[in-house]
Write a protein that binds this DNA or RNA. Structure first.
Lengths: 248, 248
DNA sequence: GAATTCGATTCTGTATACATTTGGTATCCG
DNA sequence: CGGATACCAAATGTATACAGAATCGAATTC
């Protein structure tokens, strides 16, 4: 709540959208809970009009759900929904990788991607990986996936991937990986990094089918890991669980 | 403009959304053209607030594009965009078919799908297919794809497919297939119908990989046909061209 | 004659007032 | 004592008024 006077450049609508999205992703509003406009007005400190615009956008984005009788509530997702979303995104990113490979990319376009890979390498090479390093990894991983998506040079596909990534991969704000889970997480990161390298190689050599296959495999791994995590800690909340996936 | 007092049950926002969507899909507003709120208010006969809501929704839907300086314009699509969208939808529907096959469907769930197939059969069996029969086919085909999508029983995937279908397969209103193109179109329909039958068979026998492959193939055929259609008639408008695709 | 600047008009963004509908509670009747 | 009905409160849906920004045109200057 320190950004009351910050970002005077952006519109009220956007500010409201950001504030309300954070409200949902932080978990302060539980799934299924109704979010009233009055409440939203108090939180965002703008009037009802931009608040309503933000609510409509968040509904289209998939974070909220319209209540038939009026108003919105935080959308609830089942474990199945999340797992499906992971596979869905993997499929879309597979298509993006194939497009990139088939259409060819210049070495100039690949440069930022490789640089991203190297930065990730630097992080995962530390053996007892630190909590901060893991958080950095999550951000870099998101960057890698975004860059890869861009390589497809297909606006409709990029748009679709953005939408598909909106919910299941929206990193819950303020979440940090538990110290105890770090060694296990590092092993997963190493495999994921291997996938990353393979897909870049496949794109570079214009092997569309291989590029697509590896991204699908990448997603299946993420789904498997999430399933295991949910099994082990019996009542792990879905929201923090999403953060695990974000690392995939 | 005869629905001034019709549909008093639905909200003004929804009515405005429908009216504006029709405005775009009918081609009365060309791609790139700006749509002002005042204009929209005159057309929809509701005030600016619900009009704005409708515009935001149509933007998220992909029919409109926000102008940086404010307001919205009709989104313009390149031939590449449309072709990519077809492949994109094919990929998503392939995933849906695989989910359906892997998770298994009861014969009760397959019944409406098979009934739909039979109805289509009745249409395409007529050798000189009529203009009306072709229009019916387009509607039935859309129904088949929707039913197939539902079989995946995956809300996130269904939602995504709906979004992906929004633009490139939104049948331009009032479009009818030219008489001269009908024989050629019938050949395409016969192949498409064959695909339909194969995918249903694959799902019934729980062959996920085969179900997925055939839907992808189905999309590739649609893309190829559109490409050919655009080549032959050199300056065929994209909007009517979309109607051709809707038959795929 | 062309370009630039100033001004007016129009549009969007925002706020607020009004109306209709929904949901809840309390009271009354069976 | 239970259920139904009526009334009240609150929230959504809608309309409109107001302010700031952008765009277009015209006039002036170089």
């Amino acid at each position: 709540m320190a950004e009351r006077e910050a970002d005077r450049s952006v519109s009220h609508t956007v500010r409201a959208q950001l504030a309300l999205r954070d409200l949902v992703l932080s978990g302060r509003l539980r799934p299924g809970e109704r979010i009233s406009e009055l409440q939203a007005v108090e939180i965002t400190a703008v009037s009802r009009t931009p608040v309503r615009m933000a609510l409509v956008r968040l509904e289209e984005e998939g974070l909220l759900e319209a209540i038939p009788s009026g108003g919105f509530m935080v959308k609830a997702f089942s474990e199945r929904d999340i797992l499906d979303s992971i596979e869905l995104r993997g499929t879309l990113e597979g298509l993006a990788a194939r497009f990139a490979a088939e259409r060819g990319v210049s070495s100039r376009d690949l440069e930022p991607l490789k640089e991203c890979l190297n930065e990730i390498d630097g992080l995962v090479r530390q053996d007892p990986i630190s909590v901060e390093a893991f958080s950095s990894y999550v951000a870099l991983n998101a960057r890698f996936h975004a860059l890869l998506t861009e390589l497809s040079r297909s606006p409709p596909l990029i748009r679709q991937i953005d939408r598909a990534s909106a919910l299941p991969f929206a990193s819950p704000s303020g979440f940090v990986m538990a110290q105890s889970a770090l060694p296990e997480a590092r092993q997963i990161l190493l495999i994921a990094q291997d996938h990353h390298r393979v897909v870049v190689d496949a794109i570079e050599n214009r092997e569309g089918a291989r590029a697509e296959a590896i991204m699908r495999e990448h997603a299946r791994l993420a789904a498997r890991n999430l399933r295991l995590a949910l099994r082990n800690r019996t009542h792990l909340d879905l929201l923090p669980a999403l953060a695990l996936v974000t690392a995939g």
